[in-house]
Design a protein around this nucleic acid. Structure first.
Lengths: 248, 248
DNA sequence: TAACTAGGTGTATTAAGTACACCAACTAAG
DNA sequence: CTTAGTTGGTGTACTTAATACACCTAGTTA
């Protein structure tokens, strides 16, 4: 492993969303600081997944590297949702204390680039517990105190997700390759915090020619088995409507 | 004037759009480098409006400061459209030469935060020529070589503008406080690069209750005088529809 | 074999998008 | 003072999408 040189004042934070067929979850890293002498825990709270960038990597690569480290996955959906450089980003006494202990060499003034990541829960669940990383329901995160300004970044990411999901086919990133229409509906409901009428929802999906029915059906479920569908990016790219209308 | 300490590896670039009732324009700064001995011009091309951030200012403040310097205006519409940290951002020989001469103290690896700015042309036109700054039609910029990766940033900003204008009432930022419906239509057409049917456009505007007819009319024009309208952000905020439908 | 569960379907109404043509009000030129 | 030129302003018919709403189906489990 090559030792990479860190850029001290630029970092990347990832807000990683996952869907467990019930609700939307966020990946948080537990931060724990023990007193050197007594061993007593001084700080225990949560942060987003983030780290400084290296001198020799792009921003996107840095985000990819961080996610790979936490989830073991490559090719995760990743998109910037903003850059954050408030002077008071690291303001609370506990954050300062943390930096005093841990981050000694790093600058006080850090600009962080926020990345929204969407992952298919069924592909992970793996190496999360080795590290102190776990899923938290979005509803719970809203009640938690996160380190630094990460609560703010979380909200910004959530809003970006809600904005984008209405306009781009990114909900599929939260589902496995094959999914049922009920699962698709639940993702939209979980992300947007609403509920849709089943028949109207399916009517809408029927217009999306890039959501394609498979021959497979569910098996071993205690009800009428549902049909599986897949999302074809290829068809999407070809048939996307160049709507030039505006809706404000 | 206080001397501010510069953050060497973080900068802000502004893509400033303006509308002259005909077409969309972008503000570019002429970059000129003369040979120290001969006085011969070695480099002459254009860049976006940008500069490094100061240690003691936020990103938004930095962007605001840069715009204030170029246009004299405060309270300009400003929004991030991305952060750019490619390793090869500064790649061409002329860019390297430029940095050798001018930017001696600065880092090679610079992350820049891109800001989209929209301004009402009628309020500027002022102090632009004192500095080597001027408006270029978007169509012309597409044909120009800009310094660094600024051509790329320009396209990213243009796309962000086109995306946002369809969904948020930002077209008004490009118009004076009072405007006619034809002017409003022309902004949309200039930004999106299309044309709309006049009657359908006006039908749509009629649904926007935050576009309010004034009693004033145009004067001294060689045709039927048009009515003036204004955009009320207040009404917009109150009446914006919480559409939870998705259109993909 | 009955109870349970989620899957799957159609119709009527309303709202919005689209295509399309003519008269009105003002100035400028003759 | 009349005409030409220019942009402003309006309405209708048709098509498409959004919404509201209720019942039968195909499996598993008790």
């Amino acid at each position: 492993m090559i030792a990479h040189k860190i850029v001290p004042n630029i970092s990347v934070d990832c807000v990683v969303f996952g869907f467990d067929f019930e609700k939307l979850n966020v990946l948080l890293v537990e931060r724990e600081l023990k007193d050197e002498k007594s061993g007593e825990v001084i700080i225990r709270d949560h942060t987003l997944a983030g780290y400084h960038i290296f001198e020799d990597e792009d921003l996107d690569s840095a985000a990819g590297r961080i996610l790979k480290g936490l989830t073991g996955l490559d090719n995760i959906f990743l998109e910037q949702f903003g850059a954050f450089g408030q002077l008071d980003r690291v303001s609370s006494p506990r954050d300062k204390r943390w930096l005093d202990y841990i981050n000694k060499g790093f600058a006080d003034r850090i600009v962080t680039v926020g990345y929204l990541a969407l992952i298919d829960n069924t592909k992970v669940t793996l190496r999360l517990k080795e590290r102190n990383v776990s899923w938290f329901p979005v509803s719970m995160v809203k009640e938690m105190d996160l380190a630094f300004d990460h609560k703010y970044l979380f909200y910004e990411a959530l809003e970006a997700l809600q904005r984008k999901v209405k306009v781009e086919p990114i909900a599929f990133e939260l589902l496995p390759d094959y999914f049922t229409l009920s699962q698709l509906q639940k993702v939209y409901e979980a992300v947007l915090g609403t509920s849709f009428d089943k028949r109207n929802f399916r009517k809408k999906v029927a217009q999306m020619h890039y959501v394609i029915a498979l021959k497979k059906k569910q098996q071993g479920v205690a009800h009428k088995p549902a049909q599986y569908y897949l999302f074809s990016r290829e068809v999407y790219e070809k048939t996307r409507k160049g709507r030039i209308s505006f809706i404000i």
